[in-house]
């Protein structure tokens, strides 16, 4: 398991655990980023664009650090 901000572009990952502030977790969950969701990294340059299902999520680096993923 490693944080989302350490992923590479094009990498396919599974969300394992979300460790940020409660409200932000809710936000991410509502947007489809839940534990077990599969996604692919579109771009990672400090801020990350993470595509979960059909949702393209733009996430800033602080939040990206607190999302733990493992490779698919």
């Amino acid at each position: 398991m490693y944080p989302l901000n350490l992923t590479k572009e094009g990498e396919e990952v599974v969300v394992k655990c979300i460790n940020c502030h409660c409200e932000d977790v809710c936000r991410l969950n509502e947007l489809g980023c839940i534990e077990g969701a599969k996604g692919v990294i579109i771009s990672n340059q400090k801020n990350v664009i993470f595509k979960v299902g059909e949702t393209r999520l733009a996430i800033n680096s602080d939040i990206a650090k607190s999302i733990l993923v493992s490779s698919n």
Binding site: N47, I49, T55, A58, N60, D62, I63
Partner: peptide, 12 residues
């Protein structure tokens, strides 16, 4: 106050 981090959906 507490910072609200950037989380946004990017439309196609």
């Amino acid at each position: 106050g507490q910072q609200t981090p950037f989380i946004m959906e990017l439309p196609a």
